[in-house]
């Protein structure tokens, strides 16, 4: 590996630790506001969550740690998002989210190291059914 590792012991200690569940009650107003924000006029989204609504169900416990952890890289970008839909999320549902950091990868870049943080989220409804499985990669540089 080129250069020093930016992956601290503190960051490593978060690997594969499950955070949550964090609970969101899905109100009609939330769906409407989200559909308006993404400028998608499909009337279906007044009752059911549009595909990227999982972005609004933030796993704060994990992300707060990942984004604020004391490492030399301060700038943050979203790298990729991956969603698998098993059941629709509907108005009135109560969604519980668990999340974990699954992998860390440091690569050398022109302006210094870049760190990729791979996360996985599971979204479960009030009947215990997994509705969405999500993966997201965050980049610190």
């Amino acid at each position: 590996m080129a250069g020093e590792s930016v992956i601290t012991e503190e960051l490593n200690s978060l690997l594969n630790v499950e955070f949550g569940p964090e609970v969101y009650e899905i109100e009609k107003g939330m769906l409407k506001r989200f559909a308006e924000a993404i400028d998608d006029p499909n009337p279906k989204w007044l009752e059911e969550a549009p595909p990227t609504f999982a972005a609004a169900l933030v796993p704060h416990d994990l992300l707060h740690k990942l984004f604020n952890i004391d490492i030399p890289l301060k700038r943050l970008l979203n790298g990729s998002s991956d969603l698998e839909y098993l059941q629709p999320i509907k108005a009135g549902d109560v969604i519980s989210i668990t999340s974990k950091l699954t992998r860390l990868r440091q690569v050398p870049g022109a302006e210094g190291p870049t760190l990729f943080m791979f996360t996985e989220m599971t979204y479960t409804n009030q009947r215990g059914e997994v509705v969405v499985k999500g993966k997201n990669t965050y980049i610190k540089y």
């Binding site: 924000a37 993404i38 400028d39 998608d40 549009p50 595909p51 972005a55």
Partner: peptide, 10 residues
Amino acid sequence: GWLTLSFLGQ
């Protein structure tokens, strides 16, 4: 990025 992905989703 999520907003652009939302457009692709639409």
